[in-house]
Write a protein that binds this DNA or RNA. Structure first.
Length: 106
DNA sequence: GGCGTGACTATGG
DNA sequence: ACCATAGCCACGC
């Protein structure tokens, strides 16, 4: 499937916005759904981070392939709040509880 | 047109 | 099972 330049990023953003509440996905799945290589995961962050829709994007629903989360002091509280709000459980090691059960595949 | 960037992933110790 | 290192590629400047 051929993607025009810039479509990838749009697709990624669009897909990211379709992640249901209470579900999580991985960067690998997201980029695969966008029609890219699994290792394009880094671009997801880059694109979403630079996007003007960054505020709408549920970064908290996008986690590591291992189900772990990047614990950044900057976003930690923000994410924790959203997790609590959506009923997503995270253990004290920032690992998603029942990750394999709530993971969302496109 | 080349280089840096990025809320990552895979692999090895 | 945890930590460190290397590699991946599209997009913007």
């Amino acid at each position: 499937m051929k993607n025009k330049p810039g479509e990838f990023s749009k697709k990624v953003i669009k897909l990211a916005l379709t992640i249901p509440e209470g579900r999580v996905t991985t960067y690998g799945l997201l980029c695969a759904a966008a029609g890219g290589h699994p290792m394009l995961s880094r671009m997801i962050t880059h694109i979403l981070g630079k996007s003007d829709k960054v505020d709408q994007i549920p970064f908290h629903r996008i986690v590591y392939s291992s189900g772990k989360i990047w614990s950044d002091p900057k976003y930690d509280q923000w994410r924790a709040k959203l997790y609590k709000k959506e009923g997503i459980k995270v253990d004290r090691n920032n690992k998603i509880v029942d990750f394999e059960k709530i993971i969302y595949s496109f």
